[in-house]
């Protein structure tokens, strides 16, 4: 399998260590030896952490869960790029074969005012939950829904809704934006629902509520650098941001 092409590697790590919220953090250096090119990046960190425990030091805290690129838990900036140097992947899908033996790798948390650091590489992204809470849903209770096929939806719209809905809520868009804007995340949720007839009914109220919550949380404004799309592990399009801006303008005029 993978180890058909396995080679041994040594990597020099510079990792962000910060004992807790509000504490002073710093980069620490660690040399990771005897790695395999077939490891995933997080498996490399597992090895480092087990070594640290054996050396009676505390391991580096990092968020991770599914390790297959869908849960959106892992959140690191690697060599200056959210989720590291590869297109359309999460950190857990990054493999050491993308690096060279002897490389120095810098690992930092997602940095944004609205993502306060909990410890080391772990950040608090509950601001995303509060944005969804403010209106990221169709207001239907369980029970009483009509037959699913009594609401035909044309395939192109349904596909666009799906593309937007694939957002995993990781926050790479925020971490890669110089303004720490959450526009890609918010606009993806808005686009998912506004492409569908079920979501049309509350479109105006939802757009106003979610955009305003985004501002309240301390995310910055969008200045169209498109860094978010480049960093997005799911390739969510910045066209959604244009849609959001149009819909927000329309809704705020109607609101008056």
């Amino acid at each position: 399998m993978g180890n058909d092409n396995s080679t041994e590697m040594t990597i020099h790590l510079k990792i962000w260590k910060q004992d807790g919220p509000g504490k002073k953090g710093e980069f620490i250096s660690h040399e990771a030896k005897g790695l395999s090119s077939e490891m995933s990046f997080l498996e490399m960190l597992d090895v480092v952490n087990e070594d640290l425990v054996r050396l009676n030091q505390r391991p580096i805290e990092f968020d991770h869960d599914c390790r297959e690129g869908i849960c959106g838990t892992c959140s690191m900036v690697i060599n200056g790029e959210a989720h590291g140097p590869d297109k359309e992947i999460t950190t857990c899908q990054l493999h050491m074969r993308k690096f060279k033996d002897g490389d120095t790798i810098t690992v930092e948390p997602f940095r944004a005012k609205a993502f306060p650091i909990i410890r080391d590489l772990v950040v608090d992204r509950s601001s995303f939950d509060r944005v969804i809470e403010s209106g990221g849903y169709v207001s239907v209770n369980t029970g009483g829904a009509q037959d699913a096929n009594s609401l035909p939806i044309n395939k192109p719209d349904s596909d666009l809704a799906f593309e937007a809905a694939t957002c995993i809520g990781c926050g790479a868009c925020v971490a890669s934006c110089k303004n720490a804007s959450a526009s890609l995340f918010v606009s993806a949720k808005l686009a998912h629902l506004s492409f569908l007839p079920q979501g049309k009914i509350e479109q105006d109220a939802r757009t106003l509520a979610m955009v305003r919550q985004m501002d309240t949380e301390g995310f910055g404004a969008c200045t169209n650098t498109e860094a978010c799309e480049a960093a997005c592990p799911k390739g969510i399009s910045v066209e959604n941001i244009s849609r959001m801006n149009r819909q927000f303008l329309k809704a705020s005029i109607k609101e008056r």
Binding site: Y137, V138, A145, P152, L196, Q198
Partner: peptide, 22 residues
């Protein structure tokens, strides 16, 4: 069957045919 109806009502974007049905 209720589950599929409920999820579609919530806006779950299931795969569809060109005629618009699931």
């Amino acid at each position: 069957n209720n589950i599929i109806d409920q999820c579609v009502a919530q806006g779950v974007p299931f795969a569809r045919e060109y005629g618009g049905l699931l």
